[in-house]
Design a protein around this nucleic acid. Structure first.
Lengths: 291, 291
DNA sequence: ACGGTTCTGAAAAAATATCTTCAGAATAAA
DNA sequence: TTTATTCTGAAGATATTTTTTCAGAACCGT
């Protein structure tokens, strides 16, 4: 594939990506999205499919070192020919430009597998029940995590705080935990994160909370934290990874899915909070999600 | 591939082959020869490559049931797309016991897609370079995140602290950031997280750090934070989700993969630190990972 | 060989595609 | 904020591609 500087178009795009402007990046992403077919139409078609104007496409072609768009397209066809005639079309490789044994591919395998396993085992009823609980604004919600899971708790808290009021993030130092329990009321919710290297303190907190009539929602791993016995609902994720540690990727996925569901369920009430916040943060209008 | 009469172009050509004229057969053979790439150029190019005139090509397109040559070409592209696109995409339902439209399945679709896109775009060279940098114990590493990404920064920091010394987590309050810059030395590394709703402060910190000879490693989204222009390496992840927010799942994946790779690269030196820590945490031996 | 038919490609016409220009929008700098 | 700079897409100008036309070539049956 010795065309141009001996780089594929995809590589050229990646190389120059940093020097591209906003509209050009949008275009670059669209072209890589369904690479290389997405680049084979007319310049107008490519522009429209990416939501940019045709001059932008022409300009980027130049920026990438081609004489113009038709030249870029010729390169694309040449690559395609090389690819197609090559019978070894490996689709079980995630990062196509890295070897199978590269950690990126091994890790991707593991994570994808974790996702599948987790989703196969999850109970939609428990998931829905958790969403319903968290959508009830009359219940205060306390969030706690352990040494590693603290980041997940933090992430959950930050987002949920946007959705609703009555959120409390419990500080890491377990000495202060009884103070939080003092404030808890029957009907409140304790969302706890505990994956292996389970932390005894969390189990104790759960027990205390339960004695005050608090409902425990637990995010844990496939084996289940000891706190699970106090939990009304446990959401288990697979956490295995080719590493000395466990992977939190799938747990984060479940967390995000729960948040998305709560957001949907409470949209009417949440909308205004979100809009206000949007306004506060949105200095540039570049990437606004709401209009 | 329900275009035309539901036949591929190749099938149509073979069907109608008998009714084609001499020049048309010559063309048909040429097109099938290197199917489908040979049909993707301009009508003139196709004609010349087959040794016929362009009207012949146009006429054959009509004979095969298309409105004209461009229509034939569109069909060709559609076929190509169907061939190239990843066959793993249609694992139609992730959580088998929930309906397709359940947020769990929709979210899973989005995340899986983000994973695939991200891995397709990632440059293994950049990834490896980042790993090498972070494996160098002579460089101090500073970690910073924004409002949302703070949790990711925190997660990264917590784990990296186990792997190596010289890790510093930069506090959220940006007023204190210049103090950290004071301590930075040429050769040190700043790992920054910045996804959309990009935070200007981070870009500024990056600039300050750069002026002291610090290397910037940036975790960002597919569009690229403005801080990217100061970055030596940027790792982009797809963050789209069926929700009012973006998904951090894939970013976390990249983070974990980097950590796993660093851990492997420095295993000889890291082993002892890990064992010591294991001992400190592992009161129960139930779930120990090392023996 | 002849007349009639079909086929073919050069050239012109029509339709598109591509590129250029430029004013307004967006962004960065002061 | 204001100003300078860069970026962007609409519109027009240019170039290319595609189609049409049509005269001559090739074929066919007689």
């Amino acid at each position: 594939m010795e065309i141009g500087q001996g780089l594929t178009l995809a590589e050229r795009i990646r190389d120059k990506f940093e020097s591209l402007t906003r509209a050009e990046r949008q275009l670059a992403n669209a072209m890589l999205e369904n690479y290389p077919v997405s680049g084979l139409g007319s310049i107008t078609a490519v522009a429209e499919a990416s939501g940019v104007s045709s001059p932008t496409v022409a300009r980027m072609a130049r920026k990438l070192g081609f004489g113009g768009f038709p030249e870029l397209q010729a390169e694309l066809r040449a690559e395609l020919e090389a690819t197609i005639s090559n019978p070894i079309v490996k689709h079980d490789r995630w990062a196509e430009n890295a070897p199978d044994t590269h950690i990126l591919n091994r890790f991707a395998d593991a994570v994808m597998d974790n996702m599948r396993q987790t989703l196969r085992h999850i109970s939609p009823e428990a998931f829905n029940a958790v969403v319903t609980l968290l959508s009830d604004r009359d219940r205060d919600v306390y969030v706690v995590g352990g040494r590693i899971t603290r980041s997940l708790a933090d992430y959950f808290f930050t987002h949920m705080q946007v959705i609703r009021n009555g959120m409390t993030l419990i500080a890491p130092n377990s000495n202060t935990w009884p103070h939080y329990v003092l404030n808890m009321q029957a009907g409140d919710i304790l969302v706890a994160f505990d994956i292996r290297r389970y932390e005894h303190e969390i189990s104790r907190l759960a027990e205390m909370a339960k004695s005050k009539g608090v409902t425990l929602v637990l995010f844990t791993d496939q084996w289940g934290s000891p706190a699970a016995k106090h939990a009304t609902y446990s959401l288990h994720s697979r956490i295995e990874a080719p590493s000395a540690w466990d992977s939190s990727v799938v747990t984060l996925f479940i967390v995000e899915a729960v948040m998305a569901a709560v957001q949907t369920a409470t949209w009417e009430e949440t909308k205004d909070r979100m809009k206000t916040l949007e306004g506060l943060f949105d200095r540039t209008k570049m990437f606004r999600k709401f209009t």
